[in-house]
Amino acid sequence: MVLLGLGHLVGASMEHPDGAGGIAAVEAGGVALMSAAPLAAGFTAAVLLSLLWKGFLRTGQIVGTVLAAASTAMPFFAGTDLATEAVLALMHVVLVPAVWLGLGAVRRRALS
């Protein structure tokens, strides 16, 4: 949410083409949903699979971090202004430590 506010402060339009020929605004609810839903789904899958094999938590850390890092490129294909693309990419970067540190905490707890 801080990055969303920062985007508005630096003059980013915080809008992107919606795929139906219109323009969609990047809003707080969408940011929260689009951040929390994939994070929760991946976290849940990693934790459930770790019940079968504790080593899956490390695998989940690596795969989740790589996917979050790779997703930073997606905003640059959005077809919007550079400031909006940069802010949206930074929003993806925020997920990298969230995945790594979050699953790392679960892993430490599971192995102790």
Rank of each mutant, 00 (worst) to 15 (best):
V106N: 04
A25E: 14
V99S: 01
L95D: 00
G5Y: 02
H16K: 14
L111D: 12
S50D: 06
V94H: 08
A89S: 15
G60D: 09
L103D: 02
L101E: 08
S50Y: 08
A98S: 03
G55F: 11
V2M: 07
E15N: 05
S13K: 13
V47I: 09
A83E: 09
G79N: 00
L88M: 14
H92G: 08
V96W: 10
L33C: 09
L48A: 12
S112W: 10
V99P: 00
V99K: 01
A36N: 04
A68P: 04
D18R: 08
L49H: 06
A12C: 01
G79E: 05
M91G: 15
R109S: 12
R108D: 13
L111P: 06
A20F: 15
L39I: 12
L6T: 12
A41W: 06
L9D: 12
R108G: 03
P97E: 10
V10C: 05
P75I: 00
L95I: 10
A86K: 06
G30D: 11
L90C: 09
H8D: 13
A105P: 01
G42C: 14
G30M: 13
T65C: 11
F43V: 05
T44Y: 03
W53I: 07
G55L: 11
G42H: 10
G64F: 05
G29E: 07
A25G: 08
G7S: 03
M14P: 14
G42W: 10
A110Y: 15
A70T: 06
A41G: 13
H92N: 14
L9V: 13
T59G: 05
V31M: 06
L103Y: 02
W100K: 03
F56Y: 13
F56K: 00
T84Y: 00
P17K: 09
M14S: 10
A98K: 00
G19N: 04
E27T: 09
S50H: 10
L33H: 04
G64K: 04
A28N: 05
S71I: 02
Q61A: 12
L82D: 01
P17D: 13
M34Q: 13
A89P: 01
A28F: 04
S50M: 03
R107A: 12
L48N: 04
T80P: 06
R107I: 02
D81A: 09
G79S: 02
H92K: 10
F77Q: 12
G42V: 09
L39D: 08
F77Y: 11
M1S: 14
P38I: 05
L52R: 11
V106P: 05
A40R: 06
T80H: 02
T65G: 15
F43M: 14
W53Y: 14
L6P: 01
T44C: 09
A110F: 15
E15M: 08
S50W: 00
A98E: 01
P17N: 04
H8G: 14
R108E: 03
A40Y: 04
L57N: 11
G79C: 00
Q61C: 09
V63A: 13
V87F: 01
M1L: 15
R58C: 02
L48T: 04
P17C: 12
P75M: 00
A83H: 05
H16Q: 15
R108Y: 10
V66K: 01
S50A: 15
F56Q: 00
L48D: 03
A36I: 11
V87M: 08
A36P: 00
G19F: 00
A73F: 12
G104N: 09
G22R: 04
A83C: 05
